[in-house]
Simulated scan of single mutants.
Amino acid sequence: MPLIYHLYDARKRALQCYIEPVLMYGCEAWTISKQIQNKLEATEMWFLRRMLRIPWTAKKTNERVLNEANKRRSLVRTIRKRQATFLGQAMRRGKLEHLVTTGKFEGKRGRGRQRERIMDALATWLGPGKVSDILAAVKDRDLWRDMTANAYKQGT
């Protein structure tokens, strides 16, 4: 095995142990817009290029870099899976977290465009279905675990 790939494995483990947890701290509460998703993917590619020591002046596409590393993009999918796991726990608990997540509380709404809710973002990630279907699936742990695992495998 060439030395560069052995160093790549050590760098990959260091990235997974030290950098990714700091990067994903509190990601369960994020709402990921398309702009934030693009920034996260760019960050993941920057890490990968640095680990493989590919300079930014090299004209290599992201797909080519991913093929060299034998890797798929996984940062956004991991964040979505963590969000779905947290949502399942919060909904089954059924207390204040449930009220805040579903958005069912009284009061006056602020001015401007409504912000994207976590439920809406997860509904698009988990596939076709309504928010009410997702809330019903959360109650059954096995069904919820299967739904999130399938969405993670498909990479949506």
Rank of each mutant, 00 (worst) to 15 (best):
M51C: 05
P128N: 13
C27Y: 08
R109N: 05
Y18K: 15
R73L: 10
A42S: 15
M51N: 03
V65Q: 00
L66G: 05
A121Q: 09
Q37L: 11
I79A: 06
R49M: 05
F47V: 06
T124L: 08
Q89L: 09
K34T: 14
T156E: 06
T43G: 10
T101W: 09
D146C: 03
I54W: 03
S132F: 00
E41C: 01
M51F: 05
K130F: 01
S33D: 13
R50K: 12
L48Y: 07
N67K: 12
L99T: 14
M24E: 13
L143H: 08
S132Y: 00
K39F: 07
E68N: 09
M51R: 00
N150A: 05
L99S: 14
F105A: 07
N38R: 11
Y25C: 01
L87K: 11
F105L: 06
Y18H: 15
D9M: 09
K12L: 12
T78M: 15
N38Q: 12
N70H: 08
G88L: 09
R13N: 02
D133A: 03
R109T: 04
R93F: 07
E106F: 07
W125L: 04
K34H: 12
R11A: 15
T85P: 15
T78N: 13
A137E: 00
R50S: 08
A29Q: 05
Y25E: 06
A137W: 02
Q114M: 09
N70W: 01
F86I: 13
P128I: 10
R11P: 09
A10K: 12
L3H: 14
R72T: 07
I79T: 09
A42R: 14
I32P: 01
D120E: 12
W56S: 11
V76G: 00
G107A: 12
T61S: 11
C27G: 10
I54C: 09
A90Y: 02
A149M: 08
P55N: 01
Q114D: 08
Q16P: 03
L7F: 12
I134Y: 03
A90T: 13
R80Y: 15
N62G: 03
A14Y: 10
W144Y: 01
N67Q: 15
K81A: 07
F47G: 01
Q154V: 13
A149I: 02
M91C: 12
R111T: 08
A136Q: 09
C27Q: 11
T85A: 14
T101F: 12
L87W: 11
L52F: 13
T31Q: 13
A58R: 04
L122P: 00
I134G: 00
R113K: 08
G129D: 02
M147E: 03
Q154M: 15
R13H: 02
T102P: 04
Q35N: 13
L52V: 07
N67C: 14
L7S: 11
K95H: 14
L7N: 14
K34Q: 15
E41H: 06
R145S: 04
A137P: 00
L48C: 01
L126K: 04
R53Y: 06
N70V: 05
L23P: 07
D146Y: 02
A137S: 03
N150M: 03
N70F: 03
K153G: 10
T148Y: 08
K39I: 02
L15Q: 11
R109M: 04
R93E: 09
T101S: 10
R50P: 07
T57W: 14
M51D: 04
P55D: 05
R141V: 03
Q89H: 15
H98D: 09
